[in-house]
Design a protein around this nucleic acid. Structure first.
Length: 420
RNA sequence: GGAGCGAUCGCCUAGUUGGUCGAGGGCGCCGCACUGGAAAUGCGGUAGACGGGGUCAACUCGUCUCGAGGGUUCGAAUCCCUCUCGCUCCGCCA
């Protein structure tokens, strides 16, 4: 969230930021409530100052006169406090709904067409035959079972079988090794179920509660490892010498996808549960934009290793999410589907999340506490990467060549062969 | 699930017959002294949030914060209630 002070001092910047994202921000209501809260707070504070001064003088049994005067003072302080509590609670919930204004380098736009291709890597593979979709390949290989998945869990769940599971495990293991061994990330195995305040900390809540799986006892299944990994340092003061902190974790992710009814209903593309390898970084305000470039390169390195063509997109303001400052999506080319699939989303949040989760740092002994900047990026979403690998490396007979980088994780298997 | 204990300033800890406690001590950290340099030692300093003033930086004034919220009281870290979290033991269980 933003600081009340930022809204007070730069209301137009906040309004404009929301407008660019195609969202609203209750700036006027916040300013009105804030003005009232400050007026009352000042009254209550001076009343309390009088109360303290009187108390210090008395330090024993008060006279009848003092007693009556102080009782009246107490009443007025209590009334002021009650009103202040109401105002503060209302302000707090309004503040949680103000979107993060996008960085100035984010292009204005309202539709995906306004996103900008920053760079591409590789060429779409040319086939000497009609490339199949991953569903057709999967059918031949016998690695998907969507019917039985639907039987036990409904639509948008997948069952993977046999060599398919092994390939998925190989993708995960390889990604984790790249992140930890080559890019210096520390691997974390976090809880998959989190409390409400963790979801608020990373800004999934309160705005997007409908998207999350939620239990009777107010716990949430994580929609991404970003939630537990970022909240790892909630309410802490980080040592500058530790920064940047870079974490990577592999977790399942659960999403209701409530707003996407009817979209991508077929295929291993949009699921209520999927695996993802996620990278999270904590850094200083001075370095965070550079860190976003670095983080994005780290995600790209994975696709390069798998020999999958991709493009990096700078999201326009309308596609830059509620909490994000700036975001790149990485889209992998799936030749069987003849479309790009979003396999990674790399974002920097400035101090928007850090302020919610109260994660701070001190640059030196004489420096004041400041909020860190947080970043996260998929490295990568597993099912869509799986699809891109299958479709890119398919052969005429529906077999799939295993990319070199994955073979050590597949017991040396070089290709997945269709069922006899 | 049952029983008990606990939550204080970065960390550890003192304080529970209510007032002089925003709060003592130790560690850590910073500065100074000592030293060729360091260690050790000595001295000093060392919370945050919010609001007001300010050359908006230094600084300064006020209020709040002893897990959170509420209550009693002229006055609460200290008393009462509720909640949250943690620990120990028992039960159950992968």
């Amino acid at each position: 969230m933003l600081a009340l002070q930022q809204i007070r001092e730069r209301p137009d910047w906040v309004r404009e930021g929301a407008r660019r994202k195609g969202e609203g921000a209750p700036v006027d209501e916040i300013l009105t409530l804030d003005a009232e809260a400050r007026r009352i707070r000042s009254e209550v504070e001076s009343a309390r100052a009088r109360q303290r001064a009187a108390g210090a003088e008395i330090r024993g049994a008060p006279t009848q006169e003092q007693h009556e005067e102080l009782t009246a003072l107490k009443r007025s302080i209590q009334e002021g406090d009650t009103r202040l509590n109401e105002l503060d609670a209302r302000l707090e919930s309004l503040l949680l709904e103000v979107p993060n204004p996008p960085h100035e380098s984010v292009p204005f736009g309202t539709t995906p067409d306004d996103n900008v291709v920053v760079r591409t890597w590789g060429e779409p593979r040319r086939f000497e035959f009609e490339p199949r979709s991953h569903l057709e390949i999967g059918e031949a290989l016998g690695i998907f079972d969507f019917e039985r998945a639907a039987k036990i869990s409904g639509s948008r769940f997948a069952v993977l079988r046999g060599e398919g599971v092994r390939l998925q495990r190989a993708l995960v293991a390889c990604m984790l090794d790249i992140a930890t061994r080559e890019h210096g990330y520390t691997e974390i195995a976090p809880p998959y179920v989190v409390r409400r305040d963790a979801m608020v900390g990373t800004a999934q809540l309160p705005k997007f509660e409908d998207d999350a799986y939620h239990s009777d006892d107010d716990m949430f299944l994580i929609p991404t490892a970003e939630v537990p990994l970022t909240n790892l340092y909630r309410d802490e003061v980080l040592d500058t010498s530790q920064l940047p902190i870079s974490l990577v974790g592999h977790t399942p992710c659960w999403r209701r996808e409530a707003g996407a009814a009817g979209k991508d209903t077929r295929g291993y593309i949009r699921l209520h549960q999927f695996d993802k390898v996620e990278m999270v970084r904590f850094t200083t305000p001075e370095r965070s934009l550079d860190e976003l470039e670095l983080l994005t390169r780290h995600a790209e390195a994975v696709l390069q290793r798998f020999g999958v063509m991709y493009r990096v997109m700078l999201m326009c303001s309308g596609d830059t999410g509620f909490a994000q400052w700036k975001k790149y999506d990485i889209e992998a080319w799936a030749p069987g589907m003849e479309r790009f699939l979003e396999v990674s989303s790399c974002s920097v949040y400035a101090d928007f999340q850090a302020r919610r989760a109260n994660i701070r740092f001190r640059a030196g002994a004489d420096e004041r506490l400041r909020f860190v900047h947080t970043l996260n990026g998929s490295g990568l979403a597993i099912p869509r990467t799986f699809v891109a690998v299958l479709e890119t490396h398919q052969e005429r007979d529906a077999s799939v060549r295993v990319p070199d980088a994955l073979r050590p994780y597949m017991g040396g298997v070089e290709r997945l062969a269709p069922r006899a």
